[in-house]
Amino acid sequence: MLRLTSNQCVAITFMLNGREISGPIEPRMLLSDFLRDELGKTGTHVGCEHGVCGACTVRIDGLAVRACLTLAVQADGRRVETVEGLAGADGVLGALQEAFHRHHALQCGYCSAGLLMSLTALFEQVASPSEAEIRDVIGGHLCRCTGYAGILAAALDVTKVYKEKTTI
């Protein structure tokens, strides 16, 4: 049984975007803070810190989850994916990122990383999700710039559904 005192600092290890990483944590450290402050991976944004806004959404073992509602210690031994892992090693954007760019699915960009991780998880689970399924997933994120139209268009474009529709 793992047992840590409140100020005990231990190293955790997990796969981050396909590479094993390790870093020190205390029990109370949130995964979002570990990613940003210990690992310097600032692509994961922190908004509300109580699970409402979705900015910090990452994937753990493939599932989209809130990094601010996950303790870093809970990610120990897991597979974590963040927005930094979406583009290729050569910097070429992924299909969803490309579609976000094409459809102006962001303005300030604060919510984008979380949306990209949620939608990536959806596309992995459902090859060609319906508009309703996409809306359900996007509903877990707050975007105050776009009104969501561009985000929905980008996601639909990736599913190829968009091409068959004249308007959304």
Partner: peptide, 8 residues
């Protein structure tokens, strides 16, 4: 941020 706590 949470106050410190032990973790089991």
């Amino acid at each position: 941020k949470p106050r410190p706590f032990a973790y089991c």
